[in-house]
């Protein structure tokens, strides 16, 4: 299960880097952060999981809108192939450097956790960190309002 999640994370992170369509790239980044959030849960770090999904996802929504506002639909990003090559080389070095950690992660199909410390998603949200939920509501509200604001302004501009 963990292996599948890591694979999903890497695939979508890679797609986020390679896709030239900004909208699709940001959506892939969003999916990869959801995978990372689930991995955090599997690794018994429910708080990190919750915030990875909500805060990072919230930020990405704003980032996405801002990026579209700056570049516009007609702008295209063209990069020489040498960048792609450099990226692959760097990625290979990075993967080699962390291979031990990845092998360990693939090797253990179940992370040992004590029942006392374990939180399910619901428990982490509603019992473990209730106050943080208020902060997350702030994050979501802010992201949605910023989105509405920029979208309404773009409509007016048109």
């Amino acid at each position: 299960m963990t292996a599948l999640l890591v694979a999903g994370l890497l695939i979508f992170a890679g797609l986020a880097v390679f896709l030239k369509d900004m909208l699709k790239a940001v959506l892939c980044l969003l999916i990869s952060s959801v995978f990372l959030g689930i991995i955090f849960f599997k690794l018994n770090a429910p708080y990190a999981g919750v915030f990875e999904i909500s805060v990072v996802a919230g930020l990405i929504v704003v980032l996405f809108i801002l990026t579209v506002s700056i570049t516009g639909p007609q702008d295209t990003v063209s990069e020489p192939n040498v960048h792609l090559l450099v990226f692959f080389v760097l990625l290979s070095i990075f993967l080699y450097a962390i291979n031990i950690a990845i092998i360990k992660m693939f090797a253990c199909d179940k992370i040992p956790i004590s029942s006392k410390d374990y939180f399910s998603l619901g428990e982490a949200l509603w019992i473990g960190r209730t106050f943080d939920m208020i902060g997350q509501i702030c994050v979501i509200f802010s992201g949605v309002f910023v989105l509405l604001l920029i979208l309404s302004r773009r409509k007016n501009d048109k």
């Binding site: 805060v55 960190r129 902060g135 994050v139 802010s142």
Partner: peptide
Amino acid sequence: FTMYIFIEAAGISSYG
């Protein structure tokens, strides 16, 4: 941790 989340929330509002 709670402080961090509210810092993020305030940051996003500021970007807006």
